[in-house]
Computed example of a mutant assay.
Amino acid sequence: MVILTTRAEPGSSDARSLIDLSMTAEQREKARQLVEMADGHTLRLHLPRGSVLRPGDVLLSDTGEPVARIRAEPEPVYTLRADDPFALLRAAYHLGNRHVAMELAPDYLRIKPDHVLAHLIGHLGGLRIIDESAAFVPEKGAYMAHHYAH
């Protein structure tokens, strides 16, 4: 079994030789886990505690060999859109006050589906909630440092 212990800078390896690991946002937050591959092989993630993987991250084996590249697997999300940018800003404020994991983009916000939050968003006005399946890459908290091994 291959054990992945270190995260390297994105683009630090030849992409053609890497295994693509598609993971949901929740799976990318688990530093210690077993990952079953489609071909039946298993990879063990044994990263430093608190590691959060981002799409494009390259994982190295315990011998330092680049093995895998992280991909964001599509998952159920609410994508919030508005014609008025202030409506998105207002939604981000209210969702942030509730410590909701959120993906931020210039023209949308993305959150995990939650009927209570959908109700709140509906009362804010000016927003469209699109229930879809898409990659979810929430903003990392300002307190979280992003360290790479060199």
Rank of each mutant, 00 (worst) to 15 (best):
P113E: 10
T6L: 03
G125H: 07
E132H: 10
A145L: 14
H119C: 08
G96E: 10
L109D: 02
R7N: 01
R32P: 02
R90E: 14
I130N: 14
E75T: 13
R98M: 11
Y148A: 03
I111L: 15
T79D: 05
L59Q: 00
D107L: 02
A149V: 07
H147G: 04
T5F: 01
S22T: 10
A101T: 03
I19V: 14
T63H: 09
P48V: 05
L43N: 05
G40Y: 09
S61N: 05
D39H: 07
A72M: 02
L47D: 02
P48F: 00
L104M: 08
A31N: 03
D57M: 06
L80V: 15
E26W: 10
R44M: 14
V137W: 02
L117H: 10
A38C: 03
A8R: 03
D20A: 13
R32C: 12
V116W: 00
G126C: 02
R71Q: 15
D83C: 08
D57H: 06
A101V: 08
T5Y: 00
L88T: 07
T79C: 08
R44G: 01
P66L: 01
E36C: 13
P55A: 01
R16A: 13
E36K: 12
I3N: 03
L104C: 10
A134T: 12
Y108A: 12
S13P: 02
I19F: 04
Y148F: 14
R16V: 15
P48I: 04
A92N: 12
P74R: 09
Q27A: 11
R28F: 09
P74G: 15
I111P: 03
D131S: 13
L95Y: 00
D114L: 06
A142Q: 04
G11E: 01
L18K: 04
S17Y: 09
H94V: 14
Y143T: 13
E132I: 14
R98C: 12
A91I: 07
A134M: 07
G56T: 06
D39A: 09
R7K: 11
N97I: 02
P85D: 07
H147C: 13
A135L: 09
L34E: 14
D14W: 07
D83R: 15
G64I: 09
L117D: 01
M144C: 05
R71D: 13
K140E: 11
R81A: 08
H46P: 04
A149I: 12
V116T: 08
S13I: 07
R54L: 09
V52E: 08
V2K: 01
T63S: 06
P85T: 14
H119R: 14
H123A: 01
E139H: 07
V100K: 02
R49E: 15
G141E: 11
K30W: 11
L95G: 01
E73N: 06
G122W: 11
A15R: 08
D57W: 03
A92I: 03
H146F: 13
L124F: 05
Y78Q: 05
Y78H: 13
E75S: 14
A31T: 04
H146A: 15
G122S: 08
I19R: 00
E29W: 08
L4S: 00
G141S: 15
P74F: 14
M144S: 14
E73T: 11
A15T: 12
T24V: 13
